[in-house]
Computed example of a mutant assay.
Amino acid sequence: MKKWAISAIVYLLVVVGGYYVYASVADPVTHDKQKETEHIDTTAPGHKEEVTGSHEEDADSHEDEGAHDESGGDHSGESEVHASIQTENGELVIALNDLQGNPVSDLEVNHEKLLHLIVVSSDLKEYQHLHPETNEPGVFNVIHSLKNGEYKAFIDIKPTGKKYVLEPISFLVGEQHDDHSDNALQVDEELVRKVQGHKATLEPSSFRTNEEIELSFDLAGETPEQYLGALGHVVILDEKGEKYIHVHPLAGNDPVFATQFSEAGIYKIWAEFKFSGKVYVFPYVIEIK
């Protein structure tokens, strides 16, 4: 056989042999890496499991199943929506803008409304639940009946595709008045309220932190009407008017709500129920220990 043919055969054997040596070393490494990716321990600290669907869809499903405790968006991190409020000609005007100053108008309907506005006086004695309407992108208006004084606004919205952190916004109606925020709340000895012929008794299952607490209401035999898609609504603030909780009732035909308090302290509760076409507000002050 000619020398050139023998050289070609030897060269071919060297190339083929080298390939198999490389494959035997490289493939197990690649395969091991693939297995490592597919079998991540989802119980490890800091792991975030990816879930198909949005958090808003999860919240709606949770509401259908039972308790629904809303605090008006995610309270951690920076908000991607800036909300402001001012008074103009007997109206409250709310502006919603993104971080670039553009108006934010893409909002989800939340309990039959695009925006819920909770307004309380600085001493937490006055309370109003309003529903401003919009006629231009990112701007909402509502006529108010607030007396002159200092107030805090809680603008409860669900922007589509944007992170929103709900925080209290202080504003003034009329001229500057004495600040009543130092007026301490007095804890109620009896959780019974009568408002224009209607009676509501609050019966909490517990007054302890870091556990689910059921807020049951005895309405003296009356059955509340549907109000904004629910049997009622409960708004809770701490005594400083900073921590906001909006609670909707558990599934069923009884006015029972469920929530949780992460910190001890004094809280004010406003329960809203609708009778004969009119909404009545029942306020309570409790202490969580």
Rank of each mutant, 00 (worst) to 15 (best):
V139W: 07
E78C: 03
I6V: 14
E133C: 00
Y164T: 05
L250T: 13
T134E: 12
H31V: 08
P255V: 05
F171A: 01
G90E: 10
T52P: 00
I288L: 09
D182I: 11
G232C: 05
H180Y: 10
H68F: 13
H131C: 08
M1I: 07
K48R: 11
L130V: 00
F171D: 09
S71G: 14
I85W: 02
K2A: 08
Q186E: 14
L185T: 02
S84R: 07
E38T: 05
V119Q: 00
E126I: 07
D60I: 12
V281L: 06
L13M: 13
L231A: 05
P255Y: 05
N148G: 11
A184L: 15
V139F: 03
V234C: 05
F217K: 10
I85C: 06
S122D: 12
D179C: 06
S276F: 02
L166R: 03
P283I: 13
V14M: 08
L115D: 02
W270C: 09
Y151V: 02
K152M: 11
L166F: 04
K278V: 12
I143H: 12
H82D: 09
A258H: 04
T42Y: 07
K33M: 04
A153C: 01
E56L: 13
D64P: 00
D106S: 15
E263H: 11
K268H: 10
L107P: 05
S170F: 00
V142L: 10
P204F: 10
D218M: 10
E222W: 01
I169V: 10
A26M: 13
F171C: 02
G66C: 02
F207M: 12
P249H: 03
G46C: 04
H246F: 04
L215P: 08
N141Y: 11
V14T: 11
H131L: 04
I155K: 05
H233K: 12
N89A: 15
G17I: 13
K243M: 09
H31S: 12
L166Q: 11
H82I: 14
V256Q: 09
D74Y: 14
L185P: 04
D60K: 15
L99H: 02
L237H: 15
A153Y: 01
L231E: 05
S145T: 15
N253V: 05
A220R: 06
W270E: 08
K3I: 13
F207Q: 07
I286K: 09
V51W: 07
F217L: 10
S276W: 02
A95H: 12
Y280Q: 06
L185C: 07
D123F: 04
N135P: 02
Q86N: 11
L13W: 11
H246I: 01
I85H: 03
D238L: 07
I288V: 05
G73C: 13
E225H: 00
Q226L: 01
E56M: 13
E239L: 00
L12R: 02
E108S: 15
L166I: 06
I269K: 09
P45I: 00
A251S: 15
